[in-house]
Amino acid sequence: MKHEFQPDLPPPANTVGFVGWLRKNLFNGLINSVITIVLAYLAISAIWGIVNWALINADWVGTTRDACSREGACWVFISVRWEQFMYGFYPEAELWRPRLFYATLAILIALLAYEKTPKRLWIGLFAIVVYPFLMAGLLYGDVAGLEVVETHRWGGLLVTLIIALVGIVASLPIGIVLALGRRSDMPIIRSLCTVYIEVWRGVPLITVLFMASVMLPLFLSEGSETNKLIRALIGVIMFSSAYMAEVIRGGLQAIPKGQYEAADALGLSYWKKVGLIILPQALKITIPSIVNTFIGLFKDTSLVLIIGMFDVLGIGQSANTDPDWLGFAIESYVFVALVFWVFCFGMSRYSIWLENKLHTGHKR
């Protein structure tokens, strides 16, 4: 008798898909089901309370605190202080200059992030070599007939972005050089790089900013003076480059010894071996750690408040002391937190995309 195999029946509907996932992970027993229901109730209640405060019962339109008559958030406070949050105390007649900076920065980031942008390498070189000096002249003035705007009048998101961008762009190459120097076979170079890294990693950033603001002018010649923003940038770069060096060194040590031996067998010079074989692999491995350092640096820009510079957090704290707007500190801190979250989340997502794009089978 010939046997005929029947086709397999589909699994029960309650064991696959979303329903199956719920039964397996959240409702796979009496205790787990009760815990799931209780936690879901608490989470929904908390989320509804936040949405109700931030959106439904919030006040959005107005120019004075009298417009905030409801029980929710008073976003009128943020709208009234919007220009200070974005530009600090930049002259109102010259606000087109930081706005142009924001617009061109967004365009450059979009062009560099888009993989199929033509002449992408040249755009990147322009963004690193030429663009900072153009924007410095635009924002500070004293060129092409532009009015001088002293850096002590800069503030808000403008200062946050400048410190973060300069620190990120400058600390990466300096960190690479320090990491290579620490792994060098030359004792003097290795010792100097090791001392630099260990000293700056052992000092809090607050101390570094105080040193840059107070002690750095003591080492300058008499009559010469640097403004507070330049001193803060120098301190942030020196501090973050030490941490970046250790991140890069970890990537260099993760490269198998065979890669070094293969490069030596090909007769490559030291710089060709490092630039063409070792360093690209090390940077790819350390993408998560590099971006994590960048995110930490971006958040640490709020520490410049202690040396009298008003970044976006400093502007929020100063706005909270305005007698006409007392009692709206929560809205201020929520807005500042949202600003930091948007930029940090954007960097983290881009790093994940870049890591997946460069994935060559070594990820586990």
Rank of each mutant, 00 (worst) to 15 (best):
T293V: 04
D324L: 14
D322F: 03
L326Q: 11
T321Y: 08
F298H: 09
L326R: 11
N320L: 11
F298S: 14
L313F: 03
D311G: 14
T321P: 05
D324Q: 13
L297R: 02
V312S: 06
T293H: 10
L297D: 07
F298T: 12
I295G: 08
L297I: 00
K299W: 00
Q317E: 13
T301M: 12
D311F: 10
G308E: 10
I295C: 08
G296T: 04
S318C: 05
D324M: 13
Q317C: 03
L313S: 10
F310I: 09
W325L: 03
S318M: 14
I307D: 10
T301C: 13
P323R: 12
L326D: 02
S302Q: 12
D311S: 10
L303D: 11
T321I: 13
K299E: 15
F298C: 15
S302F: 01
W325H: 01
F298A: 15
V312H: 04
G296R: 07
G296W: 00
I307A: 12
L326G: 06
D322C: 02
G314K: 03
I295N: 08
W325M: 00
G316C: 05
L303F: 08
V312R: 07
T321K: 09
G296V: 04
S302R: 08
I307Q: 13
L305T: 09
N320D: 13
Q317G: 03
V304Q: 07
D311T: 10
G314C: 09
W325Q: 06
S302D: 07
S318Y: 08
L297C: 10
F294E: 13
I315D: 06
N292E: 11
P323Y: 01
P323G: 01
L313G: 00
I295K: 13
S302Y: 03
F298K: 10
D300A: 15
K299H: 09
T301S: 13
F310M: 14
L297F: 02
Q317R: 14
S318F: 02
Q317S: 12
T301R: 09
T321M: 11
D300R: 03
W325F: 04
I306C: 06
A319T: 08
P323L: 09
G314D: 11
L326H: 00
G316Y: 02
P323A: 07
N292V: 03
G296Q: 07
P323M: 09
D324K: 13
W325V: 02
L305K: 07
I315K: 06
L305W: 11
F310D: 08
D322P: 00
G316A: 12
S302L: 12
I295T: 06
K299S: 14
L313E: 01
S318K: 14
S302N: 08
L313Y: 03
F294M: 15
G314Y: 01
I315R: 00
L326S: 02
V304I: 14
F310N: 13
N292L: 03
S302G: 09
K299V: 07
M309I: 14
G308W: 06
Q317Y: 07
L313M: 12
I307L: 08
M309L: 15
I306H: 07
V304N: 02
T301K: 01
T321E: 13
N320Y: 10
N292S: 15
G314M: 09
A319Y: 11
L303W: 01
G314A: 06
F294C: 15
A319W: 10
L326V: 14
W325G: 04
A319D: 08
G296P: 07
P323F: 02
